[in-house]
Design a protein around this nucleic acid. Structure first.
Lengths: 200, 200
DNA sequence: GTCTATAGATCGATAGAC
DNA sequence: GTCTATCGATCTATAGAC
C-alpha cells in the first residue's frame, strides 16, 4: 500500500488541515489533531515525525490537489473580450473560493515560521494563471490587436483589478467570498475597462 | 498620571506589539512579552488582565496612531492626474510600509480568533483614503471631467491596481515592500491607464 | 506597583504493551 | 500499527512578600 493512500494517514491529513486552518500553526495542538482524526497520538507520530512535518504535508497536499485540477484555459486571438473573461474567471475562482481564502490566511499567518510556503502555494495557484495571461497579452500585442507597451504591468493591473481591494477585504474577514453575480459583474467591468485602456 | 502614559504600560505595549507581530497570538507567550518589556509577569497582569485584552490594546493602539497621522490629501479638480497620483501615493504608503504589512498579516492570521479587528484596522487605514478617492471621483464625474458611470467600481479598480497582486505577494512573503522607484512607476502607469479607461 | 515563587493545565513527543 | 500512560517543558494566571 502506497504511503499516500493509507486511510489513517489521509484521515490525519484531513483533520490536520481543518485544525490548522481553524487555529493556525501554534494554536493547533497535536492532541486536538489526533482527537479529530480520530487516532491516538502515537499513531499520529508514527505517520508524521513532528508537528512541522505534518504542517508541511498539509500544505504540499493542498498544492498537489490544486496543480492536478488546474485546467488550461482556452483562449482565442479572434475574441479578446471572451478570452480575457475566461482567464479572469479562472483567476477569480482560484482566489475567492472559501478554501483558498482559508489557505491564504494560513500561509500569510505563518510566513515567519515557514517563509518558503508562500512561494510554493503561489506557484500552485495564482502564478500559472498569471503566466498564461501574460503570454496571451503578449500575443494580442504582437498581433496588433491591443496596444500593450508593458505586458508585465498590464498583467499586474489585470489581476490587480480582480484581486485587491476585494480580496484583501476577504482575507481580513470584512466580507465573505463573492457570489456568482458579483464575480460576473466584476469580470465584465474589469475587462471593459482593460480593453478601453489598452485599445489603439 | 494618565493610564496611557504610564511608562511601564507603554513598554509592555511596545514589547507585546513586537512579540505578537513576530509570533502571532498563540505563538506569543505572556512570559516572552514580560521578558521583552522587561517587567515581571505580575506587573504585566497588573496592567492587562489577560492575554486577549493585551492583544486588543496593541491593535487599538496601532489604530489610534494611524488615525492621528492620517493627512487629508489635497486634491484639485483642475489637475486630475496630479491629484489622483497624490491619493494613490497615500494609499500605497499605507499599504506597503513594513509595519503595515506586519500588522495586516497579524490581523489576517487572527481573523478567526478576533473577527472584529479586521474592520477596525481597515477603518483606520485604507478606508479613509478609499472614501476620499470615491468622493473625488464623484466630483470629477459630476463636473464632466471624466466619464465614470460607476464611481464605486472605478474606486475599486483604482485601489485594486495599486494593491493586488503585488500587495498579496508582499503579504505572502514573496517580495519585500516596494522601493521608491517601484512605487512611482506603479502609480504613474496606473493613473495613466485609469485616465484613459475613464476618458470621454 | 513590583517582585519571587508557584499552582494547575496543556503542550510536543515518547516508552512499552499488544 | 495502534494503543494506554506518562515525561519534561512551557503555558496562562495568581498568591503573597515587600
Amino acid at each position: 500500500m502506497n504511503a499516500n493512500s493509507n486511510p489513517k494517514r489521509q484521515a490525519i491529513l484531513e483533520a490536520a488541515k481543518r485544525v490548522f486552518l481553524d487555529h493556525g500553526y501554534s494554536g493547533a495542538s497535536m492532541e486536538s489533531i489526533a482527537e479529530a482524526a480520530p487516532v491516538s497520538k502515537p499513531t499520529l507520530y508514527h505517520h508524521f515525525k513532528c508537528k512541522q512535518d505534518l504542517f508541511a504535508a498539509v500544505i504540499l497536499d493542498r498544492c498537489e490537489n490544486l496543480l492536478s485540477t488546474l485546467l488550461n484555459v482556452q483562449t482565442a486571438r479572434e475574441d479578446p473580450a471572451a478570452s480575457l473573461k475566461t482567464i479572469a474567471s479562472a483567476y477569480v475562482e482560484m482566489l475567492y473560493s472559501k478554501e483558498s481564502l482559508e489557505f491564504y490566511r494560513l500561509i500569510i499567518a505563518e510566513q515567519r515560521h515557514f517563509p518558503d510556503f508562500g512561494n510554493v502555494v503561489y506557484r500552485a495557484s495564482a502564478a500559472p494563471i498569471f503566466e498564461q495571461l501574460s503570454a496571451y497579452l503578449g500575443e494580442l500585442n504582437a498581433e496588433g490587436i491591443l496596444h500593450i507597451p508593458d505586458v508585465e504591468a498590464a498583467s499586474q493591473f489585470f489581476c490587480g483589478m480582480l484581486q485587491g481591494r476585494k480580496h484583501f477585504r476577504c482575507l481580513m474577514g470584512l466580507q465573505p467570498g463573492l457570489n456568482q453575480t458579483e464575480k460576473e459583474e466584476l469580470i465584465n467591468a474589469m475587462v471593459s475597462l482593460f480593453l478601453k485602456g489598452y485599445d489603439y
